[in-house]
Design a binder for these strands. Structure first.
Lengths: 338, 338
DNA sequence: TGCCCAGTTGACAACGTTGCACAAGACGTG
DNA sequence: CACGTCTTGTGCAACGTTGTCAACTGGGCA
């Protein structure tokens, strides 16, 4: 490994001067700078990050803690984070929890592993506010997607409003029995609870009944979950004429189950999803979905995190990100109402 | 930040002893070890990775260099790598290149940026053997998916054989005009060249003509690319009756374009993809695909990389990973031949 | 000529950790 | 009792970098 000292010796200057050249310190004679630079290139010197970080107390690594990187929503989000961080010279590390409480705790608590990250972007599944409060304040954390009620910076979309808009859209299509797939009743209040709230609010606003039978819980936001939930709904004596799915994967699974049963989307059952993953745009029918502004999520989260890393002491901030209901083929007017 | 010294002071022992406890050095009296451990827990000491690395020369960070994390194949692969590495106490960093040669070079050449990673897992798009040979040997690299002809450890599947099997499957279905989507003719020999070779070999073996019109190049392995390529094929005076797509995304795009044109899959046109991403299993029709053993890819790549990191000097090794043709609905016997 | 200032460069220490060498004590053996 | 050996714990140095501060240079000015 080539070090500053090697370069200094070769160039006949002090180590500090080489460091000054590397870091662009202004007060170096152009001729000397040129000379040092030549030696640097010649020897192929590259700064040792560990040493730099040891000195400076930063690693330049940001962890993205998510359930699974291969869930398309998280993959798309990770892409945005990767781009956002790389322009700032930071590196994105991925930590997958599978939604397991122990893994989440270990990573966010940071009580387990060595210090490594300058900051953590955390998308919790099982962690509750209580778990979170117990954590050793250490590394700055920004939460995404989930309101724990914890004292922590937080980037989210307005889940209640988004669900309300989605449900209302189905109502405006003339649908009367609107089911919901993806409720995950749990200990604390989680994202799905908020989305269910928006759904119910929309139904109430339209004076539609809230039928508990139409509220199908699913453990995970997967295609399989969507399939089973849809099958359950289709076996009801009075099946729904629309389904609001709390994720696009659920929606795609549900849609495939419905079509395999010989029904059509949107004629028999209209579908709205959530997340606006690319797959939904190419599905047949293409999927109407609540589209959170993922680039903005990444940008705002990074902004917030960096401000914390820089030591800003503002009180816990919540940032609301825009969303949009993107209407595609899977939700259409009922044929008889056209 | 709590350091070894803080713990040592509090526990009334030397810094070295605390380090010994942390690292499980055997010659520490059980009582003392217990005591030190208590203080460690009390103060919440956690080793500083930068310092450790500076001392020991390892970061415990492995970079996965891929075009885009939100391409499902890479997302699924990244998941496997994440799991594989985390059980070994290593951290997965994602670096996205978008397939851009400068980004690829910067990351693998490591000539540009500072040292950071113990090893690099590299999935090249644009980098050629020449680029690669020019790189400053520094950090161990294992290539996946691409044969550069470079002197480097390499984990791959037998692309020629896999494509041959896929194409042969279409031939056995009675298809006569089998198109290929996804050729990326470039400077050196790349993955797509190998797959095209397998495709041609299968056609030759069946004495079918090789029609250059049916060989549709696409710049990227995206759904959009599949759509445009399929549209081009459908406008031919004599369109194909089967398409072998070099990725599942291409296949899904192609399939959606075909169906939107009012044709049916597999009756009019049979489709086979490559990668076996989860989305293909849920598509309608579900997608026949060449399925590389992703878990094995991750396991073997990590094994190879770790052996290099441990300083093993074996000559460049190529590991072949099993694949399997998973037959689903998108490829079926021609109706008249059933 | 002497002095000051701005512009440059260098010496040193410190970041937190672990490898190395060795010291202090306990213990066994001749 | 002397000696060697094993166990247990310590002190020192070094990894490569940068912040601090002192020191040197040359030019302008009194």
């Amino acid at each position: 490994m080539v070090t500053l000292r090697d370069v200094a010796n070769r160039a006949g200057v002090s180590v500090r001067t080489v460091s000054n050249v590397v870091n662009g310190w202004p007060h170096v004679r152009p001729a000397l700078r040129q000379h040092v630079q030549t030696v640097i290139d010649e020897l192929g010197y590259r700064p040792n990050l560990a040493a730099r970080y040891l000195r400076g107390g930063r690693t330049g690594m940001i962890a993205l803690v998510i359930p699974e990187i291969d869930a398309p929503y998280f993959a798309e989000l990770a892409r945005c984070f990767g781009k956002e961080l790389s322009v700032k010279g930071l590196t994105l590390a991925i930590e997958q929890t599978d939604g397991l409480i122990e893994r989440e705790r270990a990573l966010v608590d940071s009580g387990s592993g060595p210090t490594m990250f300058d900051g953590i972007i955390f998308s919790p599944i099982s962690t509750t506010a209580a778990d979170f409060a117990r954590r050793r304040a250490d590394v700055p954390v920004v939460l995404i997607g989930e309101q724990l009620g914890a004292e922590c910076d937080h980037v989210q979309i307005d889940n209640i409003a988004a669900s309300q808009v989605a449900t209302q859209h189905l109502i405006e299509l003339g649908r009367q029995r609107i089911a919901l797939i993806g409720h995950q009743p749990g200990a604390g209040i989680n994202t799905s609870d908020l989305r269910v709230e928006g759904y119910k609010a929309a139904l109430r606003a339209a004076s539609l009944p809230i039928d508990p039978q139409l509220l199908t819980p699913t453990p995970l936001f997967t295609r399989d979950g969507g399939v089973s939930a849809a099958e359950a709904l289709l076996s009801l004596p009075e099946p729904p004429d629309a389904i609001f799915c709390l994720s696009d994967l659920l929606a795609l699974g549900a849609m495939s189950a419905i079509i395999r049963r010989g029904l059509t989307v949107p004629e028999d059952i209209a579908i709205v999803g959530f997340d606006d993953i690319e797959e939904g745009r190419f599905a047949r029918p293409s999927l109407t979905s609540v589209s959170p502004d993922k680039k903005a999520i990444a940008a705002q989260t990074v902004r917030l995190l960096l401000s914390r890393i820089d030591g800003e002491k503002h009180s816990p901030t919540t940032v609301d990100i825009d969303f949009e209901l993107v209407i595609r083929e899977s939700s259409q007017m009922r044929p008889e109402l056209r």
